[in-house]
Design a protein around this nucleic acid. Structure first.
Lengths: 343, 343
DNA sequence: CTGAAAGCGCTAACAC
DNA sequence: GTGTTAGCGCTTTCAG
């Protein structure tokens, strides 16, 4: 491994000069610089980012912590975050928690040990209030307002849930079920609540038997629509699903049972993952603004980094001086083929 | 930020002792250790991985460089690599090149600057022979044998291409087209070649007009089947696609034009991404063994790390002492609904 | 414009 | 078992 000292020796200058030259500092003779840069290239020099970080006390890494990167929703979010970060000269490290909050905590700890410049996290469920207290680096949380101390980006899931439910009502469906994901997922609860409210406002009865929770995966959707239709006390004729995966599972069951969609049964998902838009799937769904989510998150991180730099003299900046930002993003209804035309 | 020096001061010991205690070194009094560990916890100590890495000269990071993490194939591969890495105590940083080899080179450079423990890469296209020459950290390359100097994991795309083509022939299709991705992708070329060979071996004529390349995306599949069917000199009745995305585009076109699949037109993809298996899509495809790919890649990286550790005294180890590994993985045919029953 | 030197937080000899 | 000390590769004063 070739270091600036090696270069200095060969160039016959001090290694401080090499450092200055390579970092484009102002006060270096132009000729010396050129000579050093060329030499560095020739010798195959690669700056040791680790060493740089140790002295500058900052890295160019942003950590992204999500439940599952292989879920297209998170994959797409991840890509939008990567792009925004790269544009600002940051690299992102994406970690899976696998919907496991123990693992989530571990990753949170670990990323701080890594001295990342900031953390963007989509928590798996409600976190304990103290979880984020000990984090004193830039942090952006998706979806979960927490006191007033961290930046967060919220999606208006109440609006989303309402939109979805009212759409099904307008389509003329009468017994609308809700198949959610993890019962403890706050987003899930907000949607479920909005669903219930929308029903009531429209003079529909809220039936407990039509509300069930489970996993956010396809199999879970399949299993639960099966249970609902084969063993339930009330037969639904439409279902609002906690995410597109669940909806895909529901569609699969209906498809197998040759139940006509949307004529005899309506299905609406949530997230608008890429594949939902394929004509072979054509799932009506609620779209979350992924790109906006990604770019906003990165922007907030950069703001915090900026703020800390400008206030490096003060102590305990983050919690005491900076007013946390809250961004509320709107989801949008995508009407497609799994719901019939409004009556 | 609390450091081991802070802890040492509070504990009334030297900071070397703190380091030893926290790292579970053998020669520390059990009581001192307990005291220090408890104190560290109380003070909210987090080891500075950057500093650790600087002295130990290794990090626990593995870089994964792929064209596009939002493509389910890479997302799933990425997850399998993450899991295998985590098990071994490594974290993975996944980077997109966006199918851009300039960006790929940049990432390669950058990751080395980051002092990652190893790099796993799926190159976007043929690389220049010298690309990997200057890399002297553990490296695993997917798909592209390169001299004898780096480990690589190859998928037998010749076998895959042959399998796909012969399956279409057995199904009784007569004019089989090939819609590939990037013409310069080696995997693509191998499949294309195998397709041509399989045709010849079965006494089918290879028709240039039935072979076209483009992007690996859905739109590209859609556009090119459209062109083939609307403007082509020979009308195909089946198509072997370079990946599932392209096949999805083809299916979309056929769906819109109400061309019956598999009765009047056969479609086969490549990759077996998750969504291809959904009953609504039900795409016949060639599955690449993602999990095996991921775990093998990580294993090879770990082997190299091990090897380097055990030969730390020697110089220029990687190229001169270690025999590079080559792993050949077999793809598998998944017969589903977009091809008819063999005649 | 350049060199000398301090030190980032930590590990790993080496002494005692 | 514990303290002392020398770096890891680099940036950044501080002198000159």
């Amino acid at each position: 491994m070739v270091t600036i000292k090696d270069i200095a020796k060969r160039a016959g200058v001090s290694y401080a000069t090499v450092s200055r030259a390579l970092n484009n500092k102002a006060d270096v003779n132009e000729n010396t610089r050129k000579m050093i840069v060329k030499l560095a290239e020739k010798m195959g020099y690669r700056p040791n980012v680790i060493a740089q970080s140790l002295v500058t006390k900052r890295t160019k890494h942003i950590a992204l912590i999500v439940p599952d990167v292989s879920n297209p929703f998170f994959a797409e979010l991840s890509r939008s975050i990567s792009e925004a970060s790269n544009k600002a000269g940051y690299i992102v490290t994406a970690c899976n928690t696998g919907w496991d909050s123990k693992r989530e905590n571990f990753m949170l700890e670990h990323m701080q040990s890594q001295q990342v410049a900031g953390i963007i996290i989509k928590p798996t469920a409600f976190y304990k209030p103290e979880t984020f207290d000990s984090i004193n680096i830039p942090l952006v949380v998706f979806w979960h307002p927490y006191k007033n101390e961290t930046d967060f980006i919220e999606i208006d899931h109440s609006a989303g849930g309402k939109m979805a439910t009212e759409h099904l009502i307008e389509c003329g469906y009468k017994n609308i079920a809700y198949i959610g994901g993890d019962a403890l997922s706050p987003a899930n609860q907000l949607r479920s609540l909005a669903y219930q409210q929308a029903l009531q406002e429209n003079n529909f009865q809220v039936k407990h038997d039509l509300i069930i929770y489970g996993g956010f995966d396809l199999q879970s959707g399949y299993d639960r629509i099966k249970k609902l239709l084969e063993q339930g006390s009330v037969r639904p004729d439409a279902v609002f699903c906690g995410n597109d995966y669940i909806a895909l599972g529901v569609l699969q069951y209906l498809y197998e049972k040759k139940i006509r969609v949307p004529e005899d049964f309506g299905v609406i998902g949530y997230d608008d993952i890429y594949f939902s838009g394929l004509p072979m799937i054509n799932l009506t769904t609620i779209a979350q603004p992924r790109d906006e989510m990604g770019s906003s998150a990165v922007k907030l991180i950069l703001d915090q980094i900026d703020f800390m730099k400008n206030n490096a003299d003060k102590d305990n900046i983050k919690n005491n001086y900076r007013k946390p930002a809250r961004i509320l993003l709107k989801p949008a209804l995508k009407v497609r083929g799994t719901t019939r035309k409004p009556a």
